[in-house]
């Protein structure tokens, strides 16, 4: 509590962050607050800056200006992995896994890391009984128990996306940021994936990037719309979908998307 964190602080508070790539102002003065228990969707046309914003929040990118506060603590200068250890966990838009490892070993590794055991050298990872039990529970809850021991590169793409989620869950996040978790998987499976996310502990703050307005309406309680690196609209899913500016942004660029 050294820098004055208070009980009523937001789980995540992003204050006016910007980043520029060459001539392109990819994110331009965006702010966002997530209270504990948030279910917040981030939408916007392709190239709007959503993934870049996720990178700024999670520390894979450094903002040119602005601040990121995690539970009231300024983490703007904190590295990516150090933010994870403080409970800010992300997944990637493009599947990013350990190809040669099984889902079980991957999840075990995530648990070992969370518990500060990843530098231990004597006991085999598979013989940390409590970790194996927990990994089994996670893999069962996401429906991967049947393929837990297969190398993840052997799994179907949809299953690999679920491994991403399993790894994020294993880190026991306080703030979870998912960049298009359902990208590239069939509609039926993406609903199933979000149902897994509904099982998250109520106090976890969830921010997810998602294109499918069905899923946004069903799972998000608040929405932020980005366009051209700026916040175009904010509010409940119904409110945002009815916003003419939002409809313009979508119809103008993609001619699709927002009708629920």
């Amino acid at each position: 509590m050294s820098d004055g964190a208070r009980l009523n602080d937001y789980a995540l508070s992003v204050e006016d962050v910007s980043i520029r790539f060459g001539a392109l102002q990819a994110v331009d003065g965006v702010s966002l607050q997530l209270p504990a228990g948030a279910r917040h969707a981030l939408i916007g046309p392709n190239g709007a800056g959503k993934s870049t914003f996720v990178g700024l929040i999670t520390g894979t990118l450094r903002p040119d200006s602005g601040r990121v506060l995690l539970g009231g603590h300024d983490v703007t200068r904190t590295g990516f992995s150090a933010r994870v250890r403080r409970g800010l966990v992300r997944s990637f838009q493009v599947t990013s896994l350990f190809a040669e490892m099984s889902a079980l070993d991957s999840v075990l590794l995530a648990i070992a890391e969370r518990e500060g055991r990843s530098a231990r050298m004597l006991r085999p990872l598979g013989r940390y009984g409590a970790f194996v039990d927990e990994a089994g529970e996670i893999l069962r809850s996401v429906g991967l128990i049947g393929v837990a021991k297969r190398p993840v590169s052997d799994l179907a793409y949809g299953q690999q996306r679920v491994v991403e989620i399993a790894l994020a869950l294993a880190a026991r996040p306080r703030v979870l940021v998912l960049d298009e978790p359902a990208a590239g998987i069939p509609a039926g499976e993406s609903t199933r994936l979000f149902e897994v996310l509904e099982g998250l502990p109520a106090e976890v703050a969830l921010l997810f990037v998602e294109h499918d307005m069905h899923l946004v309406r069903r799972f998000a309680r608040a929405v932020t719309v980005l366009a051209g690196g700026k916040v175009l609209a904010e509010g409940t899913p119904a409110h945002v979908a009815a916003d003419p500016a939002v409809q313009d942004a979508y119809l103008g660029r993609r001619g699709a998307g927002l009708h629920a």
Binding site: E100, L108, G126
Partner: peptide, 14 residues
């Protein structure tokens, strides 16, 4: 076989 070795292979892969 321990967490350390598994973590090293994890780093090598990704």
């Amino acid at each position: 076989a321990a967490p350390f070795g598994t973590a090293l292979r994890g780093i090598r892969q990704n």
